[in-house]
């Protein structure tokens, strides 16, 4: 074994070589300079070990757990976001559809109520013809009474029947231009019904008057 020399101390410390350091310590037993150098070196190492810091960290593990849990959440959260988005889109689509249907009703619903089909028009005309036929018969019976009887009530019946005839004539003209208009047909039917009723009342008044006499 070769003798350890002072100038080798730096190499021993730098390389942290166990064998060289053991030789340096043996050399230091008889070398004051190397012993002082090694003591300083060891002193720093000894002090360094006391620098280890340890302190209680209440809640740190819980924080770590929470952050780890949060880290695993994004997939679920993303699904919640998408689910909410799908729901929101569905609500919007349904709302738009409802609004569109309100503003663009199908022919089977609103148009069906406002306008008659060809078949319904034919049925309405049959009903009108039946009214006209009935009114003609009643008119033939009532006309003598209307011409003969003079009373305030009969005057009002005459005036009413004149107004009804005027209204029926106007509506028939208008309905002729809008043959499928259900509103006009209904109003016309009402006027016919009212004229039929008025004529019946005139006849009833005449019958009551003759009986009373």
């Amino acid at each position: 074994m070769t003798e350890f020399r002072c100038e080798q101390l730096e190499q021993a410390l730098r390389e942290d070589d166990a064998e060289m350091l053991a030789a340096a310590r043996r050399h230091a037993e008889t070398c004051g300079a190397c012993r002082a150098e090694l003591e300083q070196w060891d002193s720093i190492s000894s002090l360094a070990r006391s620098l280890h810091r340890d302190w209680e960290s209440p809640g740190l593990w819980e924080r770590i757990q929470e952050s780890l849990s949060a880290e695993t959440q994004p997939k679920a959260s993303l699904w919640h976001v998408w689910r909410f988005a799908f729901a929101a889109v569905a609500v919007v689509v349904i709302s738009v559809a409802v609004v569109w249907m309100i503003h663009h009703p199908s022919p089977d619903t609103a148009e069906g109520r406002l306008f008659l089909t060809e078949r319904a028009l034919a049925e309405a005309k049959l009903r009108e013809d039946a009214y006209v036929e009935s009114i003609d018969k009643l008119s033939r019976l009532a006309q003598p009474v209307l011409d003969r009887v003079s009373s305030p009530l009969m005057d009002s019946y005459r005036e009413k029947l004149t107004l009804l005839d005027t209204a029926i004539a106007e509506l028939k003209t208008e309905a002729g231009h809008n043959t499928l208009n259900a509103r006009l047909r209904n109003e016309l039917a009402n006027l016919y019904r009212e004229k039929q009723k008025t004529l019946s009342e005139v006849l009833a008044y005449a019958n009551n008057s003759s009986t009373a006499r």
Partner: peptide, 10 residues
């Protein structure tokens, strides 16, 4: 230091 440890675990 504690923040760094937490971040390290993440």
């Amino acid at each position: 230091a504690e923040d760094a440890v937490q971040e390290t675990f993440l």
